[in-house]
């Protein structure tokens, strides 16, 4: 394993009757936050379940902390904090009771941290989870995830269904977490604005395939949105465009190489940097007439 990679996914494949994860590869260095984006059904949850060893891969390799995730399952999970998009904790139990069940499984469980987070998130210790709001449940999951010294925090759509204030709070906690250079976060989302604030790396998955997995700044520097007259859409320019939207007035297209397109079209088109949302939209939609 290359030093400093906390998570390494290589040629990972999983086939379902209606969906295939097609030999995907990406890796996350230690000390960084990776946003895992893609539309619903792109394969984000499947990938996360594979990493968590909740489903079995058909082929490929998943290494966490340099260890195979299936053969070193328990060892790895000592060091992973997880937050899922829905609450899977027992609704009949209180945070106090859940602590009493879960804490013994972790060798480095930290009561001080746990109760600290409960206080910080203003979560009642003795109230049943079924009385919690969706946001409170997510915060509760996060409190558990961050209370046993986990070096890798994996989150599947933690911000979905939360209001902006909650989302901001959770993202702030993540930023604070990676102040510790040994720690990393992988979180999936379809809300691209989450990534603008916190993600160092972005892995974009679509239809079971990785579109890109690289540093956020690289993406924002290289992708561009081009607007112009329809005559500009011809044999020499088309290969530069990932997704094209044609209107009666002209076209709008996404390019992966903003510099080349600028040089090619010069003043004939308007070329601007693309936002993550535009990148996702155009890549997913392809050519729209």
């Amino acid at each position: 394993m290359e030093m400093g990679k906390i998570l390494e996914v290589t040629n990972l494949r999983k086939e379902y009757t209606d969906f295939i994860l097609k030999d995907i590869s990406f890796s996350l260095p230690r000390g960084f936050i990776m946003g895992f984006i893609g539309p619903n059904g792109a394969g984000k949850s499947t990938t996360i379940k594979l990493i968590m060893n909740l489903v079995r891969k058909d082929s490929g390799e998943i290494k966490v902390f340099g260890l195979d995730n299936a053969t070193h399952d328990r060892e790895i999970k000592q060091n992973i904090g997880f937050v899922y998009d829905e609450n899977h904790y027992y609704e009949e139990l209180t945070p106090d009771e859940i602590r009493s069940i879960i804490a013994p499984f972790y060798s480095r469980w930290d009561d001080e941290a746990y109760y600290g987070f409960l206080r910080y998130f203003e979560l009642p210790q003795k109230k049943k989870l079924k009385k919690f709001s969706k946001g409170m449940k997510t915060k509760f999951s996060l409190a558990v995830a961050l209370s046993h010294g986990a070096e890798l925090v994996i989150m599947d759509e933690p911000t979905s269904g939360l209001d902006p204030v909650f989302r901001r709070e959770i993202l702030d906690i993540l930023l604070e977490l990676i102040q510790d250079e040994r720690k990393s976060v992988l979180f999936s989302t379809h809300i691209t604005s989450d990534l603008d604030r916190v993600a160092d790396y972005i892995t974009f998955i679509n239809k079971g395939e990785i579109v890109f997995s690289t540093q956020r700044d690289d993406i924002l520097e290289n992708y561009g949105l081009v607007r112009g007259n329809k005559e500009l859409l011809e044999g020499t320019t088309r290969p530069f465009f990932v997704g094209i939207r044609e209107t009666s007035f002209g076209f709008e297209a996404l390019t992966r190489d903003i510099q080349k397109v600028r040089n090619l079209l010069k003043e004939r088109a308007v070329v601007e940097k693309a936002t993550l949302e535009e990148i996702m939209l155009y890549t997913v939609k392809g050519v729209v007439k």
């Binding site: 328990r74 000592q78 499984f105």
Partner: peptide, 18 residues
């Protein structure tokens, strides 16, 4: 039934537990 209700087995299988 409680285990089934919230798919809590996902939690059990995400913990360091065989």
């Amino acid at each position: 039934m409680e285990d089934d209700k919230n798919k809590s087995e996902i939690i059990l299988n995400s913990l360091p537990l065989s």
